[in-house]
Design a protein around this nucleic acid. Structure first.
Lengths: 218, 218
DNA sequence: TATCTGCCGATTGTCGACAATACACTAACA
DNA sequence: TGTTAGTGTATTGTCGACAATCGGCAGATA
């Protein structure tokens, strides 16, 4: 058994995280420290620490002496986040390209097939989880902690912000295909190609979500 | 006059920042909240907020319930930070390549000449400032806030950690030359070349500093 | 001697209260 | 009517105290 020793702060982070996933907190909403403290039955100190953490992840926007607000990203901000993610993960994959075994590649390939199935059967949450795992398996192979750290931060950010869209942007076969392209690139061992195709992967999704958001707000 | 309404937190950040630059705080040192609070005549709350900020910048390492320590980077960590910086700034420059006017390019070129002079006359602090300004002028041209934000964080981190080495790694003419390569690439308008040469720029410096650190510790 | 156990001091984690201030509202004034 | 100054309220900023717990040390034990 793993003994976990959580502070209030960590639990508050999870709480806010879940509120965002459930849609109980929406972009632009203000998070009032006192209100949340009372709601959770704790003091403001750990709330503030948790908010700090979320601010550094770009999930909450903080205006001094005014308040903490759920980040409200413009379409351009969305594209920019995805582009940056692509740049980071693209390089991470390139950096790690020699660390992929045949077994590892096969495993990634099987995941793409699994994604397609999950998408077909409407299991959106599992699909998103698997997608996250797929990408994490790739960028985590890089031994560059700095790079991996930034990538993870962006991963959390986009997960939270666009959770609800991710599973419905592409058809099941498109989802499989898009990820198979990455696996093929990794298999080829061509560093340039790997980097380029991961960049493109995120650029496409970024622009799709941004367009969706834009039309939604009209 | 610029009216600055600073909180204690910001001032504490500056204070720690300066201690690091002056070498009064060294990698591995523990920063005790209470001690610092007494020293500055304030309470622990703003100290903790400031530490949070520095933690998120990768400047301070935090071990729960143990303490806050000035980050102690291994040679590999150093190289990794510089590589990541190169990846980010490289893409930022590539992204911004059409935003450079002839005037802007000329200004960058003059800065490289100025760097050479400052290096020759031993004005190390001004040299480093100018170097920072040079690179900031490049990556800030990108309109990608996410990208620029990460780049700035890394910029602060490396500035703090390696301030003392930066001015003595290269000869004055090397310093000029290294930066002129970047200006030339920007002038050429070749996106691939710009990205590659900025990556290389940081990779070189990263490995140099890492080697210096390694031999130093023996 | 080597290892384990329990205590002690130092440091972080959390608390509730008060101070400072941004924003909205009101009222005076031109 | 539009503008400005003043006021009140809600929210963040800061405080000092107490609680929890980590790491080291001394002593017990084999």
């Amino acid at each position: 058994m793993i003994i976990s020793k959580t502070t209030y702060e960590e639990q508050v982070i999870s709480f806010i995280y879940n509120c965002l996933l459930k849609g109980e907190l929406k972009p632009g909403d203000q998070i009032k420290e006192n209100r949340l403290a009372i709601k959770l039955g704790i003091s403001r100190a750990p709330i503030r620490e948790a908010l700090r953490e979320l601010i550094s992840n770009g999930i909450i926007e903080y205006r001094p002496r005014v308040g903490n607000f759920v980040m409200n990203l413009s379409p351009k901000d969305i594209v920019d986040s995805y582009i940056t993610r692509g740049v980071l993960e693209g390089y991470a994959a390139r950096d790690a390209i020699d660390n992929f075994s045949v077994y590892g590649i096969n495993r990634l390939y099987k995941m793409t097939e699994n994604m397609e199935e999950l998408a077909s059967s409407g299991k959106h949450i599992k699909l998103i989880d698997l997608g996250d795992k797929f990408h994490e398996m790739i960028f985590s192979r890089s031994g560059n902690k700095q790079l991996v750290g930034f990538t993870k931060k962006l991963s959390i950010k986009s997960h939270l912000m666009f959770f609800k869209y991710l599973a419905m942007l592409y058809s099941p076969s498109e989802i499989g295909e898009r990820h198979k392209i990455i696996v093929d690139a990794l298999k080829s061992g061509n560093a340039e190609q790997v980097e380029a195709c991961i960049r493109n992967h995120y650029y496409e999704t970024g622009t799709k979500i941004a367009n969706l958001k834009e039309t939604e707000s009209k």
